[in-house]
Nucleic acid binder design. Structure first.
Lengths: 329, 329
DNA sequence: TTGTAAGCGTTATCAC
DNA sequence: GTGATAACGCTTACAA
């Protein structure tokens, strides 16, 4: 009983009455092959449902035409989180167009041993690795050591030589804060993200620079760095608003936190012109799809041996003014 | 400039002063090798950071020690959906213990051509494929044709010879409905799931059988099959409760829908002894982790050439009586 | 105990 | 145009 789908190139060649190398050429197209034999080979391949053995191809070609996509440890739900969903959509589009397979390497349990992507790099199973978000620097370094191209998305570790595509977090925070200042606010609260993650410090830096440039005095009592969590943001907002001199505006670093801020502000008796379920937040628009696409393209560049111009590619973002900041100046 | 991590077995052998096959044996352990050479080889391998080339190994061994995990098209967020998160935790545990790699094959865009898992099966890239949820029968059939072991989780297609691990949907619905009847309810609403998916019809069958066995008359006006959506469930609930003869109890097929039912019932003025955000639903407890683990184990059985006893393994579930059905008989 | 020879399925090189 | 021959990196017979 011969199993289906197991036909080898040898079978195709035999069926077409040619040698194995000829069959290979006919299928891959490169060399000069008479159109008669080519047709015969193609026909035979189709009939036998021939698919080249991936490992054999990989071995001789030295490439797998596939990349690993690694969800960083901050990505609870790689497909659910709206942010990463958009990012990955860009990633997926770029790789698909380039004819690359994508393998997501999940980490079901926090492994003590090397995570899959390190092993895959070492075993040369993929041509490149795209890591989205937070990653253990030790494993990252080890993956880089193997020589397999690696790119970081929405994260970067200055001390490890890995190119990255990131959002201009500092710039976004700067523009948002300056905008609030331009509305006349002088006490602007900052609800930041306390994570092992670049954007926590970066946004705070942007916020502080904006205060300085706007000639406002910093009040540490108006700042906090907390886990990215709606409930925690709500609580801190209530605390801020209960101060003797409360802020008249609050800058929350993520939309998730902004939700909590809105709820908290409502509870504290602030009127916010918005529908709870979908508040028209004044926000920073990050071009997420673009970010994913760029990262994918940079990885492809690396795979194809191109040198990248910049180690870290910073994507510009945009301030979108909407209802929650009340008025357009 | 020699790239790291690219050392081959040949390098290790050279460094240890032995032949390539000897090095191989020393590393893989099978044959009789003097402990001196073994140590030398191991030492050399460690020093050179040797990792066997996956493709080469795969080619000669005929196996990859890795499986593909395919999120069915009903899985919006494979890692986010609580149900599948639990299921995948079981899956992941089993495969990890067995030393198998897991590759998630995402479908970023609905491809017209064959999805990745079919290609991987045909190219013999993985030893087995686990598909969780809804899958196009045509592609499934094609994957099965390749001879690569395939198992279905939480789904089954009777006309395609694929083993499956499923939940006893009919039984669960039966027990739930009979329980409601035992509380004295004679008009029991049914809010079912209209999806291209076994559990829609199955739960309805269980519901109907329970009505019969309890001696209750079926009233089609109390039944509906809708998309799995909180809002839709809420709306239907309001409709049901607005009937001249409304149901006195409602069986919702998923917890998601039950949320909508509760909201709708509240809005219609029903008193439900429950906290909205986390209502103590009377529910069917599906052993999700177990389900995942079983599916993984069955796939491993197939990979190892064992014949499965049952094509479809049905997992028993359990009725958990809690607050929302008011009283324990 | 160790090395030699062969082969996994494919593609590239180079004669014919 | 086509077909031998070698090679990719590794493992398993089998001979030394």
């Amino acid at each position: 009983m011969k199993r289906r789908g197991t036909s080898k190139l040898r079978d195709v060649a035999a069926a077409a009455g040619v040698s194995v190398p000829t069959a290979s050429q006919a299928l891959n197209g490169r060399a000069r092959i008479s159109s008669t034999t080519r047709t015969r080979v193609l026909e035979a391949a189709r009939r036998l449902r021939y698919t080249p053995h991936a490992a054999a191809r990989r071995l001789i070609l030295g490439r797998s035409d596939s990349v690993a996509i690694v969800p960083g440890s901050n990505m609870r739900g790689i497909f659910s989180d709206l942010f990463y969903r958009a990012v990955l959509s860009g990633v997926g589009g770029a790789f698909e167009e380039a004819g690359y397979r994508m393998l997501i390497t999940p980490t079901f349990r926090p492994a003590a041993e090397a995570p899959q992507f390190v092993k895959m790099a070492a075993a040369r199973e993929v041509d490149g690795i795209l890591i989205a978000g937070v990653v253990d620097r030790r494993w990252l370094a080890e993956a880089v050591e193997t020589g397999t191209p690696v790119i970081l998305l929405d994260n970067h570790l200055p001390d490890i030589p890995v190119p990255a595509v990131v959002n201009d977090n500092a710039g976004g925070a700067y523009r948002a804060t300056r905008f609030l200042a331009s509305l006349g606010h002088t006490r602007i609260g900052f609800i930041g993200a306390a994570v092992d993650y670049p954007f926590g410090p970066e946004t705070q830096a942007g916020y502080l620079r904006a205060l300085r440039d706007a000639g406002l005095r910093r009040d540490r009592g108006l700042e906090c760095s907390i886990p990215i969590d709606v409930e925690e943001a709500r609580r801190r907002t209530r605390t801020l608003l209960a101060l003797p001199q409360p802020p008249s505006a609050i800058f929350a670093v993520t939309d998730t936190m902004a939700m909590g801020v809105i709820t908290g502000a409502r509870q504290s008796g602030c009127a916010i012109p918005a529908d709870i379920t979908n508040p028209p937040l004044t926000t920073i628009r990050v071009r997420k799809e673009e970010m994913g696409r760029r990262a994918a393209e940079r990885l492809l560049d690396l795979i194809h041996g191109k040198k990248l111009e910049r180690a870290v590619e910073v994507l510009a973002n945009e301030l979108i003014v909407r209802g929650t900041t009340g008025g357009r100046r």
